[in-house]
Design a protein around this nucleic acid. Structure first.
Lengths: 131, 131
DNA sequence: AATGCAAATGATAATTATTAGCGTTAAGGA
DNA sequence: TCCTTAACGCTAATAATTATCATTTGCATT
């Protein structure tokens, strides 16, 4: 039977509170002050459970670290190759695409993800100054 | 100065020889018989160098393992969530998309990747038999 | 309120892909 | 042939994630 857990709730809320698509480590650091006895394992455990249950989505792995998103609407992402920042791109993927791919492959296509890569606005400016 | 290396050539050729989008480990296993003194570190080193130089592309990380592609044309991929198989989907991404995202973000968008996820044809059939 | 069961947790050891360090080998210009 | 150093093999190190297990705690039942 599934039981209530204040920490679990806080972990979900932490992801929901930001558009930065955080990592497990980020969540841990954010909640540690409020929950001094929080264990990193609990963060990993709950994040995995939330992805499993569909309440969170894994967006990408950036610098070897998995990044999560609580925004379940179909949208694209941009990843800065310099600073690792992950941001939303409001281009909505159509179910049509999944259908197209499904017919092409003869597979059961459940979803797709669209990821742009490049250098973000901030990093562009900074390299301007440096260069 | 860059020097010739038979092993390096073989590593690139191994990736080029298949549409399976192999991992470093796969390349190592494939070449080990022909090069008994091949080191796994050499495979990793050369794969990273090829990605750096643009001769290979990193497609995705599947089951914690990085997967490579020698097909540099812009195309999408499908990843089976059951068996980890990675296959091509001949939907070509347009430069228009990158431009759109670039304007949306004010960033320098270099490329994008489109990844479909689901259950591949084979795994669908097998689960039919099993169920 | 006390009790009992199993879910949830904390702490930490284990796992594992990848990278770094370092001494050796060998490509290829002089 | 000699010399420089790129490329290599070997292996230790790194680091994110997972597994293990003893303890804690939510909550249904008494």
């Amino acid at each position: 039977m599934k039981r209530y857990s204040r920490k679990r709730e806080a972990i979900l809320e932490a992801i929901r509170s930001t558009k930065s698509h955080p990592s497990a480590e980020w969540v841990y650091a954010k909640l540690k002050p409020e929950f001094p006895d929080l264990s990193l394992a609990t963060v990993y455990r709950n994040l995995a459970a939330f992805v499993e249950s569909g309440e969170l989505v894994s967006v990408a792995v950036v610098d070897s670290k998995e990044r999560y998103d609580a925004d379940l609407s179909s949208h694209a992402h941009f990843i800065c190759q310099q600073c690792g920042d992950v941001s939303d791109v409001d281009i909505h993927g159509s179910r049509e695409l999944d259908k197209l791919a499904s017919e092409y492959l003869g597979a059961k296509v459940e979803r797709h993800e669209l990821i742009f890569r490049g250098i973000c606005h901030n990093c562009c400016e900074n390299s301007d100054i440096a260069g």
